[in-house]
Design a protein around this nucleic acid. Structure first.
Lengths: 229, 229
DNA sequence: AAAGAATCGTAGCCCGTGCTACAAAAGGAT
DNA sequence: ATCCTTTTGTAGCACGGGCTACGATTCTTT
């Protein structure tokens, strides 16, 4: 039981420091729910009651904030082994503040939050480790949000793009790299309009600062890019 | 010892559920550092080495993100009993990602993070509670950041102001309320320019939606305000 | 292979807001 | 009481970027 999910769970920060057997012992104790979702299907709607957080087993989900007007801001994209929804549930909220949709056919495991924050007799020795792991995960998530502010606080299109491309390049460790988002997703991520972004990307190419084709980007003048952050 | 700091520590979420005596027993075990700062003084500089997080004992500190160009974004303002710097340090960072300055004459207690996340023999029975408290604090902080995105993601000045004033009113539970920030701070918080913000506030007053004098605000047409969020 | 749906680039218009500059008012210091 | 500093409100100008529309390309679907 749950052997199918083990590869994803092994990668999950929540189980850092635990053996395969310890993980397999814990899961039945959690009372998890496992669900499948088709591409584009809604995983949770903002406002739904929340008692569990999610772990992506297979596929990919996208957490997004939406207005009434349909404007949306992508908060995060999560793949196998990654956790979502833990911030609100450990904050004491009882409903999901954001929506989650599947960007691919996906499988998600939902874990009741009280199984983490309250003691469980059967596996007490693992429990302290679980809490410490969760503390680290939540802190890192908060930090990632902090990083998002780095882009959103920038006022100009060039500055946002330069900062984003600079970070991506540093992350990839190369001047040439691929991005996982398409143009529309990137625009939502940076909170700008897609046409304006494409226009500016074109200008930066004309000026010889960058080159790109589809999702492949190359930084041709790192100095100029750094300067316009 | 530490009786002077007790009133602030009692209000601190980290010590929720602990008695005064338990708190006083814990502090010596933490190996804290207590420092005073004058108004406008720098508490920590972005980039400084970080091994501790802070608890405000007295006064007020402001966490802010700065560019090279002097542009800044206020991430949070914290008073007595409130915690800052816990997110990066529990994320595993070893240097402060943002700067902190004192907005008033202040006293701050710094607690080494490993005293929270690692066991301490003398007070083991309090320790599980400490970790759980910290988990909640970090999650709530992350959630608050999430809330900040609510303002930053909005494209228009009116929308940002309307959303902010609406939240403030709801928080105060009244259509008339005071805000703790001055105009410049509010502009930095919403990531807009101060003159543009003042202009828009004036317009909203002319239209009879709100009224204000200095830091005192009154919402005169809640329906209109809600509509322009 | 053909048709439909996504994805992406480009162009023009125009509103919104950043910026600089200045004046008025309030608060602090000597 | 007087001067200096800080805070706040206004005005005019310039321009960046949102929005709509359209065409080109690529990826699915049957």
């Amino acid at each position: 039981m749950y052997e199918k999910q083990l590869p994803a769970l092994r990668k999950c920060g929540l189980f850092t420091g635990l053996t395969d057997q310890q993980i397999l012992d814990l899961i039945p104790c959690f009372g998890v729910r496992i669900s499948q979702y088709a591409r584009q299907e809604t995983v949770v709607m903002a406002g739904d009651e929340q008692t569990m957080f999610g772990v992506v087993i297979e596929g990919q989900v996208q957490v997004q904030k939406e207005d009434y007007s349909g404007d949306r801001l992508i908060l995060g994209i999560f793949g196998p082994g990654e956790v979502f929804g833990e911030v609100p549930v450990f904050s004491g909220l009882t409903s999901w503040p954001n929506s989650v949709i599947a960007t691919q056919n996906s499988e998600v495991m939902f874990i009741p939050h009280h199984k983490i924050s309250e003691p469980c007799c059967r596996v007490c020795h693992s429990h302290r480790l679980l809490i410490a792991n969760m503390l680290r995960i939540v802190a890192q998530k908060a930090l990632a949000m902090n990083g998002r502010l780095n882009y959103l606080k920038l006022r100009g299109m060039r500055e946002k793009l330069a900062a984003f491309l600079f970070d991506q390049s540093r992350l990839a460790g190369s001047h040439t790299f691929m991005i996982t988002m398409n143009r529309e997703q990137l625009a939502d991520y940076l909170n700008v309009s897609r046409p304006s972004m494409s226009r500016e990307l074109g200008r930066m190419r004309d000026e010889g600062v960058i080159d790109f084709f589809r999702s492949s980007f190359t930084i041709k003048d790192m100095g100029a890019l750094r300067g316009m952050r």
